[in-house]
Amino acid sequence: MRTTLAMFPLEMVVFPHERLALHIFEERYQQLINDCEEKEITFGIPAYINRKLAYGTEVRLEKIEKKYATGASDVICRGLRVFSIVNFQPTLNDRLYAGADVIFRENHKDGSIRQKEHFINLVQRLYNVLEVDFPEIPYEEITSFSFAHKLGLSLKQELLVLKMMRESDRYVYLIDHLTVTIPIIEEINRTRQLIELNGHFKNFNPLDFTDYTLGEID
């Protein structure tokens, strides 16, 4: 089923349930935020990658944090549903902002408890390696989208995750990514520690060792 959404293209990927802070300064998007506030409409943020638009996330305005005399504002939005674009319109009817006919994609919540726990354990391990505090998120609220911006994914990889319509597939992809990424970071940390330890050798004087013999090590 098609529906029409106002569009706010950005060079980023927005995930469902994500809390997003935006600074609105262009006139067309000031108009969009006013319409969201007055008419309670939602809008779409399609990922603008390589000058292309295809997928994005519907978002809802949750709060206007601050309004400026210029008409600009700081707002908080919340990600809702993933959509694919059928037809993009540079302006939506008589509005300044763009619009698009979209189809909402069904999200299959088929991830297993085992996948979820494995995923969480890997994320915790990554945060430990990076010496970053693990965020306090209730277990039941954690999904494959919860840490997607903080796993070292490229923009294209984030878009790939967004396009996956099964939670189980997203877990498989992210678990594979973390399984490869974490050992690399651990090795980098180990190398860094060795370099730091090697600093102790700056005071090494070979003349201090006067009693030694030459030969192969057994």
Rank of each mutant, 00 (worst) to 15 (best):
M1Y: 00
M1Q: 10
M1G: 12
T4G: 07
T4Y: 05
M12N: 00
V13F: 02
V13G: 03
V13I: 10
R19N: 09
L22W: 04
L22N: 01
I24S: 03
E27K: 15
L32I: 11
N34Q: 15
C36T: 06
E37V: 14
T42V: 14
G44M: 11
G44N: 09
A47Q: 03
A47M: 01
A47R: 00
Y48A: 08
I49M: 11
R51D: 11
K52W: 15
K52F: 14
L53T: 05
L53P: 09
A54W: 15
Y55W: 14
V59F: 10
E62D: 15
I64S: 02
T70A: 10
S73V: 03
V75F: 05
I76H: 08
C77N: 07
C77K: 12
R78Y: 15
R78N: 06
R81N: 13
R81L: 09
R81H: 12
I85S: 07
Q89F: 15
P90M: 11
T91L: 06
L92I: 04
N93S: 15
D94N: 13
D94C: 05
R95L: 10
R95H: 07
L96P: 14
L96I: 06
Y97L: 11
G99P: 02
F104M: 13
R105A: 14
R105E: 15
E106Y: 12
E106Q: 13
K109M: 10
K109F: 00
D110T: 01
D110W: 09
R114I: 02
K116M: 01
H118K: 01
F119D: 10
I120A: 00
I120T: 08
N121D: 03
N121R: 02
R125K: 15
Y127C: 08
L130Q: 11
L130K: 12
L130S: 08
L130C: 04
F134L: 10
P138D: 07
E140P: 04
I142N: 05
T143S: 13
S144M: 13
F145Y: 06
F145S: 03
S146A: 00
K150A: 10
K156M: 13
E158C: 05
L160S: 00
V161N: 09
L162H: 03
K163S: 03
M164R: 09
M165F: 06
M165T: 12
M165S: 14
R166Y: 07
V172I: 13
V172S: 13
Y173N: 06
H177M: 06
T179V: 04
I184P: 12
I184G: 11
I185W: 05
I185M: 07
E186S: 08
E187M: 02
I188A: 07
N189H: 04
R190N: 12
R190W: 11
T191G: 06
T191P: 08
R192L: 14
Q193F: 03
Q193K: 01
L194P: 03
I195C: 02
E196P: 11
L197G: 14
G199K: 13
G199Q: 03
K202W: 00
N203A: 00
N203S: 01
F204Q: 09
F204P: 08
L207H: 10
L207W: 06
T210H: 00
D211K: 05
D211L: 08
Y212C: 03
L214F: 04
L214M: 05
G215Y: 02
E216C: 10
E216V: 11
D218S: 05
